[in-house]
Computed example of a mutant assay.
Amino acid sequence: MKMTVITDVHGNVLGAVQGHSLSEKKGDVEASVSFAPGHSTHLIDVDDDLSTVDDVDEFQQRLRHHLQQHQQQQP
Rank of each mutant, 00 (worst) to 15 (best):
S34R: 15
H20E: 15
S51Y: 04
V33Q: 10
Q73E: 01
G11P: 04
D55R: 09
G38M: 03
R62K: 13
G11R: 04
A36E: 15
T41Y: 05
H20F: 07
M1D: 03
P37K: 14
D57R: 11
V17M: 14
G11D: 10
D54H: 02
H42T: 03
Q18G: 15
V53G: 03
L43A: 13
T52Y: 03
D8T: 07
Q72M: 05
Q18E: 14
V53A: 00
V56Y: 07
V13T: 14
E58C: 11
D57V: 06
N12Q: 15
H39Y: 11
A36P: 15
T4D: 04
F35I: 01
L67G: 09
A36H: 08
A16L: 05
K26M: 09
V33F: 10
D55S: 03
H39L: 10
Q71T: 07
Q69A: 08
V33S: 12
K25Q: 13
D47R: 02
M1K: 08
H70I: 12
K2G: 02
D49H: 05
V5L: 02
D48W: 07
L67H: 11
G38N: 02
S21L: 08
V5H: 00
H39Q: 11
T41V: 13
T52Q: 03
A36I: 08
D57G: 10
K2R: 10
S21I: 10
R62C: 11
T52L: 00
Q74G: 01
V5A: 01
H39K: 14
Q71N: 14
K2D: 08
S23Y: 08
T4K: 01
V13K: 06
Q18H: 10
A36F: 13
Q18W: 06
V53I: 04
Q18A: 15
D49S: 02
S32Y: 10
P75D: 00
E30P: 07
F59I: 05
D8Q: 06
V53S: 00
S40F: 12
G27H: 10
T52F: 02
N12K: 15
L22T: 09
D49Q: 00
T52M: 02
R64F: 05
V17S: 06
Q68E: 10
R64M: 13
V53N: 01
Q68F: 06
Q71H: 07
F59E: 01
H66Q: 06
K2N: 07
K2T: 09
D45P: 03
V17W: 09
H10E: 14
H42E: 07
K25G: 11
T7S: 06
V33I: 15
D48E: 01
Q74C: 03
N12H: 11
G27V: 13
D45E: 15
Q18P: 09
V33Y: 12
A36K: 11
E24L: 09
S51N: 07
L43R: 08
Q71I: 09
S23I: 07
Q68S: 14
H20N: 15
V9R: 11
L63S: 06
D47S: 06
D47W: 06
D8E: 09
V53K: 00
D48T: 14
